[in-house]
Nucleic acid binder design. Sequence first.
RNA 1: UGGGGUGUAGCCAAGUGGCCUAAGGCACCAGGUUUUGAUCCUGGCAUCCGGAGGUUCGAAUCCUCCCACCCCAGCCA
Length: 555
Amino acid sequence: MTEDVKPVNFIRQIIDEDLSSGKHTEIVTRFPPEPNGYLHIGHAKSIWLNFGIKDDYQGKCTLRFDDTNPVREDAEFVTAIEEDVRWLGYKWTAIAHASDYFEQFHDYAVELIRKGLAYVDSLGADEIRNLRGTLSEPGADSPYRNRSIEENLALFSKMRAGEFANGEHVLRAKIDMSSPNINLRDPILYRIRHHPHQRTGDKWCIYPMYDFAHGQGDAIEGVTHSLCTLEFEDHRALYEWFIENLSVPSKPRQIEFSRLNLNYTVMSKRMLTQLVEQGYVHGWDDPRMPTISGLRRRGYTPASIRNFIASVGITKKSNIIEMGVLENCIREDLDPVAPRAMAVLRPLKVVIENYPEGESEILDVPNHPANPDMGTRKITLSREIYIDRDDYMDEPPKKFFRLGPGREVRLRYGFIVKCTDVIRDVTGQAIELRVQFDPETRGGNQPVGRKIKGIIHWVSANHCANAEIRLYDRLFSQANPLADKTKEFTDSINPESLEVLENCKVEMSLSTSSSDTRYQFERTGYFYPDKESSAGKLIFNRIVTLRDTWAKLAG
RNA sequence: UGGGGUGUAGCCAAGUGGCCUAAGGCACCAGGUUUUGAUCCUGGCAUCCGGAGGUUCGAAUCCUCCCACCCCAGCCA
């Protein structure tokens, strides 16, 4: 699963065959997002596939914006998409836009009209739909289907000139209204949209449909393998029909693969947009979102995402991948390189009664348990410390190796302490622990016969920094938020997907840390400074927890 | 019930007629190491490949029929 293993999948097999048969000598792919939203991890699959092929076969890959529908698209999204692709670690051979080819597409449309293969239809949207037939019944010809070539040419020209209102006419291919494939029932090629385009401005008022733009765009760019998702399988016949009937410069081949789905989240751009616009999350880059920008802000690395895609593979089978696979990838990426630190999320004060008041000691501790090259850092230990509330229980169950009344535990890198007293508030809740330390056990020294299994993290009360820590959990409480068709997917949003802890205590070294370091807070998880974090106010996002056998045992 | 697809373990996924009494990863279970209940290490985890027939000396891989699931009736992509 490392990145130096070349991926094997059915698409690469096809490419290998095309190369060995001499059908192609250079491989050209493209990644074609529509700039109407942010990229999500499902797009990362397509990016990994297309750019990965380009890299491994020394081919070409264009980042091409599929901007054929000006009413939904926005320049804000194109900038964000470029940034996301770059961040994932890929370089495009060229950047292009379907709109770059509008003039050429228009000429192709005229070519079709001249060949008697396209006509201007003056039916309304409802009428067109009614004549299209159904899944099991054939459609019927439009009364305008047999207009003369001259009339079609004249009408289409007027459409372009802006002489008609939206919806008044449309250009259609003349194929077969009784085809069992609905895409072949005289599909619409051009529609009138009096709407400025984010790139071409007011130049056009007719815009090509996806089907009329995509394949021809591929052909113009010399794309050899046009990789798209399963829902376009039915469109392939139309894709090929255009390629066969138009004087395009090359003949690309469309190959479909299945989209990526993850459980406990949604992957449709429409739904992600809804989450953002209706305020269920705090923007496209909310760390709970499966967007590239959300994962980035959360602390995921580009390599972890690439490895994740590589590990799930490319097939034609519909799938829902378990979130645990993604989590495993980021842990795997971070464990060998993340510096360790101690951070107390829910502080509980502990006074070491036999530790001299006003004194302290400096401990030189390793930044990584298995990699001495990562060096050491100094932390201070003194009479008053904080430990995590989770590491103390009034009535510990068996197998709980941490603190409880009368119990012993080791302070990480420090000595063994024994809980001798518990101070409580009026409700009876423990608010402070009194402990005694054993000087014999300093520095990891374990006297014979003393077997202390529990080790807990801590920070010195007078030698720590305050921090806000944001704990993220799955966005939905249902594995498949779309399974129950009687409910809105937003009904299964996890109300505890974000927990903000404002009063965390972290070791001093974190207050001067780089904003681009991902840490492992020992025993709790991997954390990454949020973009809102500053020296005056530390904020960390939890990327993922550590594997937690105890949590599993405790239920 | 038209057309297009897919079915190998809880989730992914190799496998392209004999070396398959079916790789690998995640998850899970059992041990070991460990100053993170982390990491790491060891072992376990499909007599079976959606089902039923058939072809063959031999099938997850070929044929037939059946079943299940996904996609398609936007002037969206």
